[in-house]
């Protein structure tokens, strides 16, 4: 599903060039559950941004479902993000002035789904994640775990086959973290959703079936493990 060939990313900071990725070649299959680990500055977030079509490679190629998206335009990438992937962030990244329901509707707003269907599907997604009765709460009226579940509902509502999670449990306590991870595992096992998880916590990475470690912009280990 995801193939990268010798992906390089260099940031230009003023006069200096800062390398973030130095030739990453990887293969992530459909239905896989991958953790990306590494110290800060190792390039793991940069790599996820590239996989998530939020950023472009400096050199190398990135094939998504066999299509090279390395040089897609901004709008083409937006379309891919909208239809084929979902994001869950450490800081939840919900619209603070919109209700849970409206947050979940957001991707459908940009995919042109009719209002009635939008409402219906958003409600269904929220119910599925155990948020029934909280549809009209604002994010600040919800607990951290609930907010992250709203974010997951938002990521999945367009039935995207890919989920990117950037430290999804970073702001949650252990118990809630486990609940969220159970949810993620369920998405992977029951809905065959491919999951790419960035984390620096070993017990979170333990939920995945494959752990890729980054150091200084290169892959230093790629280990499959029993879930």
């Amino acid at each position: 599903m995801i193939r990268t060939f010798d992906v390089t990313k260099v940031y230009q900071v003023g006069e200096m060039t800062v390398p973030a990725l130095n030739g990453v070649t990887l293969n992530i299959g459909r239905g896989d559950f991958v953790s990306i680990m590494g110290p800060s500055g190792s390039g793991k977030s940069t790599f996820m941004n590239i996989l998530g079509c939020l950023d472009l490679v400096t050199a190398g190629r990135y094939l998504l479902d066999g299509v090279d998206v390395s040089h897609f335009s901004k709008d083409e990438l937006a379309e891919i993000r909208n239809r084929r992937m979902g994001f869950v962030f450490q800081g939840f990244n919900l619209l603070s002035r919109s209700s849970a329901q409206e947050n979940v509707e957001l991707p459908m707003l940009y995919s042109g789904t009719p209002a009635g269907e939008r409402r219906e599907r958003a409600r269904e997604a929220l119910v599925k994640l155990g948020l029934e009765g909280r549809e009209h709460h604002l994010p600040n009226q919800l607990s951290g775990g609930q907010q992250q579940r709203v974010a997951i509902a938002r990521a999945m509502v367009n039935e995207a086959p890919l989920l990117f999670a950037d430290e999804p449990t970073g702001n949650l306590d252990t118990k809630t973290s486990m609940e969220i991870m159970d949810l993620v595992v369920r998405l992977n096992e029951e809905s065959q959703i491919t999951i790419v998880l960035v984390t620096h916590e070993l017990d979170i990475a333990a939920f995945s079936r494959r752990v890729i470690r980054f150091v200084d912009g290169v892959v230093v280990s790629d280990v499959k493990q029993g879930a």
Binding site: G52, D75, E79, R81, P107, Y110, R154
Partner: peptide, 9 residues
């Protein structure tokens, strides 16, 4: 956030 979930230019 809007861009991440697919808002175009």
């Amino acid at each position: 956030i809007r861009m991440a979930v697919g808002a175009k230019t």
